[in-house]
């Protein structure tokens, strides 16, 4: 970690530095039950109207607080949602020694 990073805290709404988690919703499968919305720790999801039905969507804020915990993915009965990107808050909070998202493996 560079010295500069070590001593600078990012502005949490600075999109150039801060990369929050991101989920993708399969709108075909999602039935708008709202389970994911109610359990998301960051309240990063909401229900929106799309194609005549309700579906889960990510909040479009300057700081969508998705931490890529995938609790939504585990709770969804229809396997309609899941994180596609982990979070990295940059600078002082830069993620180190991490790889891509991957389910448990059997060695």
């Amino acid at each position: 970690m560079a010295v500069r990073e070590r001593f600078s805290v990012p502005r949490y709404d600075d999109a150039a530095l801060v990369r929050t988690g991101r989920v993708e919703v399969d709108e075909e499968k999602c039935n708008g039950c709202g389970m994911c919305v109610s359990i998301c720790p960051g309240k990063a999801l909401f229900l929106a109207e799309a194609g005549g039905k309700m579906v889960a969507r990510m909040v479009q804020a300057e700081l969508p607080e998705c931490v890529a915990c995938n609790d939504c993915a585990a709770a969804c009965k229809r396997e309609a949602i899941g994180a596609v990107r982990g979070c990295d808050f940059g600078m002082y909070y830069k993620a180190l020694h991490r790889g891509d998202l991957c389910p448990p493996r059997r060695f």
């Binding site: 609790d71 991490r98 998202l101 991957c102």
Partner: peptide, 14 residues
């Protein structure tokens, strides 16, 4: 409420 458990994807650790 519901079935919140299950295996999910997580970042790999180097």
């Amino acid at each position: 409420v519901g079935k919140p458990d299950g295996m999910v994807a997580r970042e790999l650790q180097e």
